[in-house]
Design a protein around this nucleic acid. Sequence first.
DNA 1: CGGGACTTTGACACCTCTCAACTCTCGTGG
DNA 2: CCACGAGAGTTGAGAGGTGTCAAAGTCCCG
Lengths: 224, 224
Amino acid sequence: MYVTIPTTRSNPISTQPAPIKKAAPIARTLKAGTFLYREGDEAKRIYELETGVLRLSRVLENGRRQVIAFGYPGDIVGFPNGDEYHTECEVLCDATVVAHRREVLEDGEGETILHKRLLQAALREISGMQDHFMMLGRKSAEEKVASFLCVLADRVGSPLGNYTQVTLPMCRSDIADFLSLSTETISRTLTQLRRNNVIALENVHTIIVLKPDTLLNLSAGDDC
Amino acid sequence: MYVTIPTTRSNPISTQPAPIKKAAPIARTLKAGTFLYREGDEAKRIYELETGVLRLSRVLENGRRQVIAFGYPGDIVGFPNGDEYHTECEVLCDATVVAHRREVLEDGEGETILHKRLLQAALREISGMQDHFMMLGRKSAEEKVASFLCVLADRVGSPLGNYTQVTLPMCRSDIADFLSLSTETISRTLTQLRRNNVIALENVHTIIVLKPDTLLNLSAGDDC
DNA sequence: CGGGACTTTGACACCTCTCAACTCTCGTGG
DNA sequence: CCACGAGAGTTGAGAGGTGTCAAAGTCCCG
């Protein structure tokens, strides 16, 4: 049981899709600034990100927004629930995706290998989100930002001498809405990390991790 | 991409299960206070809750805990990721569950109907968790508690005259760790709702919703 | 009746938000 | 080439919500 009131949504009645037969997965190229899909769009496809960066988010009536995840190569987005997407997915950096029909996940449709792969991705998603709960609810601003940088450094950092360089394609408010903080707090926390020589800011969208161990400790809430 | 650093965990390598052939789903009875499974247990089964109440949670080294969800009849718990459970599941009220082998979800194994049902449950889970993010990150204490009570009233409330009675089998700290608040804040918020005659407290574990509409407004952040 | 766990209440501190001003970057147009 | 403006980011001051700590109250069960 989750707490899911305010947004009325369609029930997950399993739809009986028209018997359209097999089609090869479709590769698509996406321009930064466009949307892969928006809330309310019919959820026909599941996307596997090959290159680029995506931003997955939900918006409330009040204007409050939650960035649910950033999509990096290898990630899968667009898991359906009911007939429509309940999130929106914007392209942050030019991207290429492979689109699978949702029926491959839901029915298999003979594509056993792919079916299993999508299913495992969904299960991984659940596990990842469970961990993310912990972060949203129980970590301080510094812990959140440090965690965020650690993960990015690990996953998409590039070596730069002894250090690791990380590009942040998203703007501060995207990070803020992902970590449930204000942009000002993001900014202040980054400044603080910089002052303590844990990171350096090459430019606004590029940071260099100077002390990965310290960053990791900060992320876990060990007070150094 | 979620932020999932501090807990090291097994990779979701799809395990090739031994070719054990079909077995009927197993019904199990569970006593309150026992654990259906704990973190680290081998994830062999997926459970469908028929009666009772469960509490699904994760604990960090620091002792910080996040209650991920409460399980009510109809809910499915124990979605695997890798070989082990990464959460623990305690029985709050005597419960009965039906245990399915995880292979039914992962491979189908001929049980097409059940396979689809579990899969849809997993997708519903993802969607529900996405919404829950919004709540953890972007709602005030009052909004959180109101949301929580609304959902419970809707789902397991029983009519009582013109009102709705809701039993809270979990203790305050469970609610606190679910909503990412302190027990004191839960208590204070309930008191405030009581003072405003939105709810009444029959006893510690039983509340009566007096003004469901007000509660719903509060939950959405409309300032009444 | 007494003990213990849970809950409530109060006082206070502090983290993070809000609001506001300023800086920086970058693109545009004179 | 420089001025200008727009948008994003940074910094500061102050307010407020929520956590922490402590004490009192409540309930259950032996």
